[in-house]
């Protein structure tokens, strides 16, 4: 109930200001451009190519969406208002997380017409699209929770955006191939397991692996939990 009210308040920020419209439209435009690029440029379309580009858009889109979440509440002192209400810190964090996820899903919905168009003109399997979308939502959840955690550490949303984007870019950049030959094979497996992109790629190939689902959910849980602990720390 209280989380629902908090989400409603958050959504109103995006409805009553330009921020939400600009961010979601920009995301949908970028997604659609990448979506249709292959189709018109090289007259072939591989759904995995499309899905593999989305996390790179997320590297900027999600920190932009989450940067104000907790930083702004602290900067404007509205966090003090929230703390004077009968709500828990966990309610605040979860509502911020779900709001960002709703906006990501809204952006994906705006990309649906292109997806339907591609389905009509090419022989993409529906299950491949579904597994890709599951992967997108899971990696978005992980990135949102990470960005929220960074947002809980600072009252400057510029700092929050920069740290989140750079850190997520590093996480995306370091794929298992980067470490091959650098570290021993014994270490390569656990290191690879800790990196998100490999897990995500499984979904883009139509594979819904349990260990990848567990990985992303654990990733999201750890950073949401860390954000709650951080907010609960009293001055």
């Amino acid at each position: 109930m209280k989380i629902r009210q908090l989400i409603k308040k958050e959504i109103k920020f995006y409805l009553n200001t330009l921020t939400g419209y600009v961010l979601v439209s920009l995301f949908a435009i970028l997604v659609n451009i990448f979506f249709l690029k292959d189709l018109f440029a090289i007259r072939s379309f591989q759904i995995s190519n499309f899905f593999s580009i989305i996390p790179w858009i997320f590297v900027f889109f999600i920190p932009a969406l989450s940067m104000r979440a907790l930083s702004e509440e602290k900067k404007n002192n509205t966090f003090e208002v929230l703390l004077s209400l009968p709500i828990k810190e966990s309610d605040i964090v979860i509502s911020k997380f779900l709001t960002a996820l709703i906006l990501v899903i809204l952006g994906l919905i705006l990309a649906l017409p292109s997806l339907i168009f591609v389905k009509i003109v090419s022989n993409v399997y529906v299950l491949e699209i579904v597994s890709g979308l599951i992967g997108v939502i899971l990696i978005a959840s992980a990135f949102i929770s990470f960005s929220l955690f960074i947002s809980s550490l600072t009252d400057s949303y510029v700092v929050s955006f920069l740290i989140s984007s750079i850190a997520l870019m590093f996480l995306m950049f370091f794929q298992s191939s980067v470490f091959e030959g650098v570290i021993s094979d014994v270490l390569l497996r656990p290191v690879t397991f800790l990196l998100p992109y490999g897990h995500y790629l499984d979904f883009t190939k139509g594979l819904v692996e349990l260990d990848s689902i567990v990985y992303f959910l654990s990733f999201a849980f750890v950073f949401l939990f860390a954000s709650i602990i951080n907010l609960e720390k009293k001055q």
């Binding site: 308040k9 109103k12 920020f13 009553n16 200001t17 404007n76 002192n77 509205t78 003090e80 208002v81």
Partner: peptide
């Protein structure tokens, strides 16, 4: 300083 959600 009465912080409020000015966008509401």
């Amino acid at each position: 300083n009465n912080p409020l959600y000015s966008y509401l």
